Computed example of a mutant assay.
Amino acid sequence: MKKTIQRGAVTLLFIVIASFFGYNYLIYGGERDIATETVDYFITAKRITSEFTSDVQLSNKKYLEKAVAISGQITTINDKEIILNNTIICNLQNSDPSLKKNIVVTIKGRIVGYDDLLEELKLDQCLIIKKEIK
Results as ranks from 00 to 15, higher is better:
32 R>M: 10
49 T>S: 14
63 Y>D: 01
50 S>V: 12
36 T>M: 03
47 R>Y: 09
58 L>E: 15
27 I>S: 07
60 N>M: 13
46 K>V: 01
42 F>N: 09
59 S>I: 03
28 Y>F: 12
27 I>V: 14
65 E>W: 09
62 K>A: 05
44 T>Q: 11
45 A>V: 02
33 D>W: 02
35 A>T: 13
24 N>M: 08
41 Y>W: 08
31 E>G: 04
54 S>P: 00
33 D>M: 01
41 Y>E: 06
47 R>N: 14
28 Y>M: 01
25 Y>W: 10
29 G>P: 03
41 Y>H: 08
47 R>W: 10
27 I>M: 11
37 E>F: 01
35 A>R: 14
24 N>S: 10
54 S>R: 11
57 Q>L: 13
33 D>Y: 05
35 A>D: 06
43 I>M: 11
50 S>F: 15
58 L>Q: 12
32 R>H: 05
28 Y>R: 02
44 T>Y: 05
49 T>W: 05
58 L>Y: 12
25 Y>I: 01
64 L>V: 08
40 D>K: 14
29 G>T: 07
24 N>C: 03
57 Q>A: 11
26 L>T: 06
65 E>G: 03
29 G>Y: 06
36 T>Q: 13
60 N>C: 09
44 T>C: 10
61 K>E: 14
52 F>M: 00
30 G>K: 15
37 E>M: 09
53 T>Y: 11
49 T>F: 15
32 R>G: 05
56 V>K: 07
50 S>T: 11
58 L>T: 08
49 T>Y: 07
24 N>W: 14
56 V>N: 09
25 Y>F: 09
